[in-house]
């Protein structure tokens, strides 16, 4: 965030002064013509302007609004509130801590169940086994679907009397039938199973691509040394896959923080399905519009998200320069 002010510099007028063809590549530096500079300035300036106006300025405004009291209706009604929105969220707002807990559970489940399933599938399917393409296609199909569709499809599976699961369990139509999306003791887990259905395929594809890129000679050498499958994976494959592993860790964390669609679809994120992202929206646009509290929650979500984002950026771009 400290780099924000700099992004305003490369406007069409200011940027071209610094532009030159990279010496390392061309071997000769040639000054660009005025027209070329203008073109380059526009090429950079236009996307940057869009990014700044629609992503970074709103992010800063969110931070600003989190220190105000406002019902969101009239700009003149904005009043300063200091830190009161934050203390309200942490001390008075009952869904806050459950939402934090649910986000943590969400992350833990993805990290300990969904992602490992994806990795396992990738490792198994990387072998030359019969039907590997068919398997891959099957596991990959849910990745194409939106989380909304995942929610609707699983609602058909989970419905209390009409759903597949309770019919398989033989409890459908009886008082003992579990309402998978309605019972607050189980609905978080039911939603996580549905999420895993999609997430595991995603991880599988990413990891599979990485596995295919591994230099075959590495495995040959390990095989000659008599490594078994287990050793092969943990001593040879896993270390080589480090860049992909980082991506997968980051994706898992970000997905856990971004989770929204499926719980919003199920019951608007209430009754056991509270998540930070949903609380933000409930306070921002719902019938009970409390912009200050919603923004404070948004900032909390932002701060948590910046952790993995910065980690990823440092990892990715450190080597670039």
């Amino acid at each position: 965030m400290s780099v924000m002010p700099q992004t305003t510099l490369p406007s069409a007028a200011a940027a071209p002064a610094d532009v030159s063809v990279p010496p390392a590549r061309s071997g000769r530096v040639r000054r660009l013509s005025g027209r070329d500079r203008l073109v380059l300035g526009l090429m950079v300036g236009l996307p940057t302007l869009i990014q700044v106006v629609l992503v970074w300025i709103p992010t800063l405004l969110s931070v600003g609004l989190s220190f105000t009291k406002w019902n969101g209706l009239n700009l003149a009604d904005i009043r300063p509130a200091g830190l009161s929105n934050y203390t309200y969220a942490a001390q008075e707002y009952p869904p806050f801590w459950p939402a934090v807990a649910h986000n943590i559970i969400w992350l833990a489940f993805l990290a300990l169940v969904a992602t490992p399933i994806g990795l396992l599938l990738a490792v198994l399917l990387d072998q030359k086994i019969r039907g590997t393409r068919l398997y891959q296609s099957i596991f990959f199909t849910p990745v194409m679907l939106s989380m909304v569709m995942v929610g609707i499809i699983w609602q058909l599976v989970y419905a209390r009397n009409e759903g597949l699961l309770n019919n398989l369990l033989g409890t459908a139509g009886t008082p003992g039938a579990v309402d998978w999306f309605g019972d607050s003791d189980v609905n978080l887990w039911a939603a996580l199973v549905a999420t895993t259905w999609r997430h595991a395929g995603y991880i599988m594809v990413l990891y599979l691509a990485g596995l295919k890129g591994i230099d075959p000679s590495l495995r040959e050498a390990a095989a000659l040394d008599g490594a078994n499958a287990w050793q092969m994976f943990f001593r040879v494959v896993f270390p080589v896959m480090r860049p992909i592993n980082i991506v997968i860790v980051v994706i898992t964390i970000i997905e856990a923080l971004r989770a929204f669609d499926i719980v919003y679809l199920i019951n608007k994120g209430t009754n056991g399905l509270e998540l930070l992202s949903v609380l933000v929206i409930q306070n921002l646009v719902g019938v009970g519009q409390v912009i200050g509290v919603g923004s404070a929650l948004a900032v909390i979500l932002l701060v948590i998200s910046l952790g993995p984002i910065v980690y990823y950026l440092v990892r990715t771009f450190r080597r670039a320069d």
């Binding site: 209430t270 009754n271 409930q282 719902g286 019938v287 009970g288």
Partner: peptide, 9 residues
């Protein structure tokens, strides 16, 4: 806001 954000939960 009272009905929606507070009473429902």
């Amino acid at each position: 806001a009272m009905a929606n954000n507070v009473m429902i939960p």
